[in-house]
């Protein structure tokens, strides 16, 4: 029987527990509008991960983790063009750039980092295709799921807390009016600076997240930090009309709106 459903009804943690306990092998597809991820498991271990919205670059991963320098990256990109990840990996190990363990540990970290984002998806259609193998031209790893589940569960708890603090990403941010505070003297990391640069009542938090390529949990984490530091406050985005619409008021003519409110005021005064 096909394992399929929605993360809204069957949490991602539950799903991973099932794959882990049953030592399942196959591909887990999880879909949300615009994004599809495919994770290959072999005997209950994570072997390979890919996402339609972000192509994993093997050489970039090695550079990001400082296994090769930026100039080596440029040189190797030309030299390895036409080679798949598998062939490139063998070349790099044989040429002494890195070791097999080095390559595997970087890929495990990369797959795990990308895969962990799925824990913050509140919904998404999933299906498990039993027996599906990883692509031949990719390097596979054997990552135990226990740690991922524990870390994921921790992140989910954090996400719930952050969501309670910042329930809507449709709101905007503005700098707090605190004369004498020089933001340049505050120690912020690069991600926080990137977000700060888009703080403007016209930009919703959602738009800032999209522009800075942060997922829901990351943007909430940054906004929470900035809120706690008293640097920003959450406001209604500019241009969003105050909802005194015909839904709120039974009279359609705007001129009658004020008269209606004044009638209410007079009545409350007389209670």
């Amino acid at each position: 029987m096909t394992l399929k459903g929605n993360l809204r009804d069957f949490s991602f943690t539950q799903l991973l527990n099932l794959i882990n306990l049953a030592n399942k092998s196959g591909a887990l597809y999880v879909e949300r509008p615009g994004v599809t991820t495919r994770t290959i498991f072999q005997n209950g271990k994570l072997a390979y991960f890919e996402s339609s919205d972000e192509k994993l670059s093997f050489l970039k991963s090695l550079t990001d983790h400082q296994l090769i320098t930026a100039s080596q990256h440029r040189l190797l990109r030309e030299r390895l063009s036409g080679m798949n990840d598998h062939e490139a990996g063998i070349y790099l190990v044989n040429a002494g750039y890195t070791t097999l363990d080095g390559v595997l540990s970087i890929l495990e970290k990369e797959y795990a980092d990308k895969f962990r984002h799925l824990f913050s998806w509140p919904d998404g259609l999933f299906r498990f295709e039993t027996g599906e193998l990883p692509p031949d031209d990719r390097i596979v790893v054997h990552l135990n799921l226990e740690n991922l589940i524990v870390e994921g569960a921790r992140e989910m708890k954090e996400f719930e807390e952050l969501k309670a603090e910042i329930p809507s990403l449709d709101m905007a941010l503005k700098f707090t009016e605190r004369p004498g505070t020089d933001i340049r003297n505050v120690n912020l990391n690069s991600t926080e600076w990137r977000v700060i640069s888009y703080v403007n009542p016209k930009n919703t938090i959602q738009q800032i997240a999209a522009t800075t390529s942060l997922d829901e949990i990351e943007i909430r984490r940054v906004v929470y930090t900035l809120l706690q530091a008293g640097l920003v406050e959450i406001i209604r985005p500019d241009g969003l009309p105050v909802a005194l619409s015909s839904e709120s008021l039974p009279v359609k003519n705007p001129k009658e709106h004020k008269s209606l409110i004044k009638r209410l005021i007079n009545r409350i005064r007389s209670i």
């Binding site: 910042i166 809507s168 449709d170 909802a243």
Partner: peptide
């Protein structure tokens, strides 16, 4: 949190 949730549902006064 409740305040922000309600304000997001309907940004009324």
């Amino acid at each position: 949190s409740i305040l922000e949730t309600f304000h997001a549902y309907a940004p009324t006064p």
